[in-house]
Structures are given as structure tokens and as C-alpha cells.
Design a protein around this nucleic acid. Structure first.
Lengths: 210, 210
DNA sequence: AAATTTATTGACCGCTTGGTCAGGTTATGG
DNA sequence: CCATAACCTGACCAAGCGGTCAATAAATTT
């Protein structure tokens, strides 16, 4: 029975099972927080016995660490949108596009990250102090260059970056609130497009790049 | 010994003790999440035996409910800034001022709210569907009036409100990340003033109100 | 097809959790 | 100064937790 209903475990069974567990863990950690999540809940969601989880991930914290690390990777990739741009409209616009897409496609991951940071980043403090800080300084320098070139108004680069993060991630982290205010219905394709358009318009006009 | 070191319990001892417990609970819930928080931790932080907590609040959830409710009240009060304004610069500006001040003075409450919404608002769903929805629609109408009067550009009122919430609350919810990127130091008075200035400047210019 | 490694699992363990309760202590009111 | 009510708390409990382990099953190698 090749290519059965369950994803084929012929090639790399370990990877397949790990992915199943990680997906379940991401969802449970997002919905219950680290403290509220239980290995039993994750196991049920993954359709595996609890003991099997500990075969692939020694502890709950190790599993959590992997989940958080994967989100960070995704965000770093999106950040490249800011790099290869010549003007703020293009760079910031592409970055907002990318981050809004991530908020839509990976809402659980975004929530796990938010939860982790809110609780004082006990697990990812080193990320914040090294990779994220370096990345932030680099991007701030690029923004200062745009300002020096007269391509946008002189706004504080850090606070601009915070605004970009806050606004885009809000659609993932507070998605439930937004959905409720949207009459209980999830945002449609057009709703997401309109949201992205609004964010880009206000911020790009706000920094004087339009 | 009138007016001793401990807050006077002569007048309304019940209220005093409740406030002590609520303050401790707010902090612990913010730092550990609902699932990660324990009654023992809250009791230690409040300097009371655990059993005493259950004398004032029957269950962990009842205590949590009170904490969340108090934050919502604070935000509703801040919302009045938006009401008594004639122009967007004044209204939105005052609202940003108020919400930034709350982020600074009540970071724990903001985190508890964020955590609650992220986890699907199991406790405050009714707030979202009634009070918050009504408030949002009222404010959206006010914004549409400003647009009709030509006092600002035609932006989607809902997405503007989301941006205001996201940006201001980010300074509380992600305060640890911001502090880390600030060299590990908490934001100074001037930092907060600069942050508020940046947010107001970008958003007010972004909606074409300047 | 035997041997060996890898994957799977039910049963179990020590510990912490939210919550209870009986009994003690303090304040209030007559 | 006593009685009644409000307040406080150490000791305790059932339930659920993260994690372990010995036994088994499946795959892979020889």
C-alpha cells in the first residue's frame, strides 16, 4: 500500500513523525500556553500515545524549544524582504506583505512567540540578545540611510520596526478578537487584502514615503 | 497603633486584602499565564497562606476573572479620550497618549488580557461580543464622520483601531523584547515620550490628519 | 532467517496542583 | 465580659502532571 492515507513513512519516518508532533505541539502551546499545555493534550492532537512523544523529544521544554525556534526561522526569512529593496515603499511594503502572510499562515507560531516574550523569554533570551538584536540594528541602519537620502521622513527606526511587528502580528495574536468583531466570521481573502492594504497605506504615508 | 506599616485594615479590611491578592494575581498571571500560574505562587507573592486566597476567591478561575475584568474597565475609561474630541488629531492623539500611559503603568494587566484573547477568550467572550463590539462600532462611526468632514483620509476605521491597539499595547506585551533591544535597560521617561511621539506622528500623518 | 537496531506502548511513579475543612484567632456588638 | 460572626491557617486529599521503563513490534542489516 504505497502512499496510503497517512503520510508516507517510507522515506524518512523519523522526520514525518517529528513534523506531526511539532504541528500538534505548536497548536496546543498556542492555545493553552506553555504552562497550560500538557503532553497528553499534544499526544491526543497528534494521534500518538504520550510515551511516544518522549521518544522523539526528551522533555516538554525541548519540544517547546523546537517549536519556538521554527517560528523564529520563518520570521528571519521574511525579513529578507526588507533587505533587497532600494526604497522604503518597496522594502517596507514587501515586509508588511510578508509578515501579514505569516500571520495568516502561521497564527499558532506567532502566538507561541508572543506568549514566550510576554513571560520574559525564559527560553529564547539568547536569540533576542544576539540574532534579533543584530538584525534590528542592521535594519535600523538601512532605514536611517533612506532618511538620509530624503526618501522618507526622519522617524525613529526602532519605533518604526516595533510598529511593523505590532501591527502585523496583531492579526495573528489577536485574531480571535478581530474575528469576534468581524461578526464571528474569520477574515476572508478580501478582508486580509484590505487589512494589508490599510496597514501599508497608513504606515507608508505615515513615514512620508508615499 | 493606628495607620501602621501595613495598610490600615481598620476601615474596610476585606477590600484591602482583596486588593493585595488581586495585585499579586495580576503579576503572576501575567508572568506565567493562567495555566502556569499557581495559587501557591500568588499566595507567596501576596504574603498570605494559600488557604486564605480561597476564603476571598472561591476558585482560581474566579480570581482570574476579576483580574481580567479590572483591566477591561481601565481600557474603557481610556477610551473616553476618543469621544470628547472634535478632530482626529486631538482624538486619536489623546487616545494614543492614554493607551501608552496604560501600557506603562499596567503592563501586567495588558499581558493578562493579551494572553486571554490569544487563548480564545474562554472567560471574556461575552465582553468581546457585547461591550467591546458596541464600543468599536461607535468609534468606527466617529472616524467615518471625520472622514466625511474631510478631516482625514478615507482609511478603514476598524483596521485603524486595530493598529492603535496593536501599537500601543505592544509596548506592554512585548516590553521585555523592547527592553532587551534597548540594551537590557528599561525605557526611560524620555524613551517613553519618544515612543509616544513616534507612534502619534506616524499614525496621524498616516491617516492624513496632520 | 537470525541478529540487531529502531520504534511503539501500557503501566507505573513521585510530585505538584486546585481545592477542602476543622479548628483556632481576632474583631464587633450588646 | 461574653457571644456571635468574621477571618485566618496548617494539614490534608483526590486528580492530573511530566517523565520512566520494561516489554513488544517492526524494520533493517548481515
Amino acid at each position: 500500500m504505497p502512499d496510503a492515507a497517512r503520510p508516507s513513512k517510507r522515506e524518512e519516518p523519523r522526520r514525518e513523525t517529528e513534523r506531526t508532533i511539532l504541528a500538534a505541539a505548536e497548536k496546543v502551546f498556542a492555545e493553552a500556553g506553555f504552562g497550560g499545555a500538557t503532553m497528553q493534550l499534544i499526544a491526543d492532537m497528534a494521534g500518538l500515545p504520550k510515551a511516544n512523544l518522549h521518544y522523539y523529544f526528551p522533555t516538554k521544554e525541548a519540544l517547546y524549544r523546537r517549536v519556538v525556534g521554527e517560528i523564529f526561522e520563518i520570521w528571519l526569512q521574511a525579513a529578507e524582504a526588507l533587505d533587497q529593496a532600494q526604497c522604503p515603499v518597496e522594502g517596507i511594503g514587501a515586509y508588511i506583505d510578508a509578515k501579514m502572510e505569516i500571520s495568516r499562515r502561521h497564527p499558532f507560531g506567532s502566538k507561541v512567540w508572543a506568549s514566550e516574550v510576554m513571560h520574559g523569554a525564559p527560553v529564547i533570551q539568547d536569540y533576542l540578545e544576539t540574532t534579533l538584536r543584530d538584525w534590528t540594528e542592521g535594519r535600523a541602519a538601512a532605514i536611517r540611510r533612506w532618511i538620509a537620502n530624503g526618501q522618507m521622513q526622519p522617524v525613529d527606526p526602532h519605533h518604526l520596526l516595533y510598529m511593523l511587528w505590532a501591527t502585523t502580528q496583531h492579526y495573528a495574536d489577536f485574531g480571535h478578537q478581530i474575528e469576534t468583531l468581524n461578526g464571528g466570521r474569520p477574515l476572508s481573502d478580501e478582508d486580509w487584502a484590505a487589512a494589508t492594504r490599510s496597514v501599508k497605506e497608513i504606515i507608508l504615508r505615515g513615514v512620508g514615503a508615499l
